[in-house]
Design a protein around this nucleic acid. Structure first.
Lengths: 336, 336
DNA sequence: CTGAAAGCGCTTACAG
DNA sequence: CTGAAAGCGCTTACAG
């Protein structure tokens, strides 16, 4: 049906082996022959059949990306970063999402066999992610924001460091009673942010009242948490939400209750989603460069693919985050 | 290195042909043998090598998705819709973006050869999209929001109908001088929206002043257009922007100039991006179900893949949009 | 520098 | 119902 290497070979009066070598840029082809092969290939609009090529060469020029989801701001940015690096290396992306279902994840990973040279995996099932998560133990893979990689190299957002820095910022701006709205307990970042908040508070001598409200990273949970905070006996002078969406929900609750931010209560989030800069007052938050997270993960994977040997311990990198100070955490006026 | 069909065959004491038939659910395999094959395959954790399978079966169980970009709200939602349908059909997605470069697009399409059973293509190069755009003329493909498909089936957002409906809404709420902020001239939706606006205005008897400011779908262009509108000799009583991002930029310009929306000038956009509901006043707009656009396109493609024959004219479908009325287009008070 | 041939891991007529 | 064999379209030692 379509043009194969045989057609090119026939037209160019050479063997298929020579066509293959010429097209793949091998040295051992006469310049004149090479030229002829390229001309014929161009004229015939020949494109090598990928499956055939990867079956015989054992390389696919493709990396698999297995994510909990494909949509939303976060994954969109992540894909952007991965895509940019993939393109610059002439790689294709085979994308798969498993929608929170461990079985689906396993089947997605299995389906990658023979289709990809390596794998980028984001799995909230942190414990299972280590060994068993990846179908083929021989398949190079990098774990993305899923906690420690165990046997696999891992790249994580520095949620712990970011949470400490944010808590420090709130303390530095004169706040002492800082409540925290936590993310889902089974989420690695959520846990790290809570831990960072607690550890930084612990560095302040004297009694600092802390209050942790459980949330789930959704706006609604932030809204409920905001109301809960206001209903409490002692009102905090700052609220630190584990992500921006919850901070926004909280801000909404404060607005409804006539509580002013930052005059009555300061507010901070985490992630720096686009909305954070559009709301009023602008939300102080920690910027996470999601695209960079994806790009860097792929580069880590490419290192593995190139360097062959897993020499020593797998990398366990941390992506730095950046404090973005906006109106919502303005310095506290000393009490009149 | 890894487990192949031969290993399974050996362990199960049958030929590879029988293993293949059993695993692929063919009828002509003894129940007992089938059972044994499955047991062995499970025990060995056998997964068929995809490249080999697709090389011999000529099917890849994969559809290619070639888009101008991968990130941003729009593409994220699009991928979501495509992904959902793909998953429900056990299909994989090979994703590629070409970043506005026609050459890259061509190479992306070429690279899909032998890797996908069909193609979803979104191409702003409307004219080229018809025939030559797709590498292999034999490859089933559906054109996504790129204008008429020519030889290919196409699915487009009903931008024309939406723009008419929005213009009608502005007229119905008492506005007569309606300015329009246009999108990029090489964009199909932008052209259709402008056309809809003009056609609907033309239905109103009597002199209706219309003013079209050229934009590019970006917020900054909307901002500049807003300033330009205010600087004009006669100020319109409503502005219809070809998309929400420009409407938002325009709103920002109005705010800066102390012009009140909707009291001084009504404002409407198109797309219903999430921000549209968060700004103040809430933006009247046309909701476009992007996920549905993607899902429906893939379903169209699957119809083609199943039904074999291109019986008759290729489909040319239009995705309906929905008017969402918010504060920014409140009914005009009759002049005092 | 070039070609004939084996082989990658499957599927699928073709016999039986 | 089952197996031997051809073949999918490439790549890559192996000879020459």
């Amino acid at each position: 049906m379509s043009i194969t290497i045989k057609d090119v070979a026939r037209e160019a009066n050479v063997s298929v082996a020579t066509v293959s070598r010429a097209l793949n840029g091998h040295e051992n082809v006469a310049a004149e022959v090479r030229k002829r092969v390229f001309e014929v290939a161009d004229r015939l609009r020949y494109t090598p059949h990928h499956a055939a090529r990867s079956l015989s060469s054992r390389r696919t020029q493709t990396v698999g990306v297995v994510l909990p989801d494909l949509y939303g701001e976060f994954f969109s940015e992540l894909m952007r970063g991965i895509d940019a690096v993939a393109r610059s290396h002439g790689l294709h992306l085979l994308v798969s999402s498993y929608h929170g279902d461990p079985d689906e994840q396993a089947s997605a990973l299995r389906a990658m066999r023979g289709r990809v040279d390596g794998l980028l995996l984001m799995s909230p099932f942190a414990s299972e992610a280590g060994h068993g998560g990846v179908a083929d133990p021989g398949m190079p893979a990098v774990l993305l924001n899923s906690g420690a990689g165990g046997a696999l190299p891992a790249l994580n957002v520095d949620s712990y460091g970011g949470a400490r820095a944010m808590t420090r910022h709130l303390l530095d701006t004169g706040h002492r009673h800082i409540a925290f709205i936590a993310g889902p307990e089974d989420n690695h970042d959520a846990r790290e942010r809570l831990r960072g908040y607690r550890d930084e508070l612990a560095t302040v001598p004297g009694a600092v009242e802390s209050r942790v409200v459980q949330g789930d990273f959704e706006e609604a949970a932030g809204h409920a948490a905001g109301q809960e905070v206001l209903a409490g006996a002692t009102r905090p002078d700052a609220v630190f939400a584990a992500n921006d969406m919850m901070a926004l929900g909280c801000l909404f609750a404060f607005n409804q209750a006539g509580v002013r931010v930052p005059d009555d209560i300061a507010l901070a989030g985490f992630d720096d989603i686009p909305l954070a800069r559009y709301v009023h007052p602008g939300l102080t938050t920690m910027r996470v460069d999601i695209a960079e997270l994806g790009g860097r993960a792929l580069r880590l994977l490419l290192d593995r693919l190139g360097g062959e040997g897993t020499d020593g311990t797998p990398a366990d990198e941390r992506l730095p985050v950046e404090l973005v100070i906006r109106e919502s955490s303005r310095k506290r006026r000393t009490a009149a």
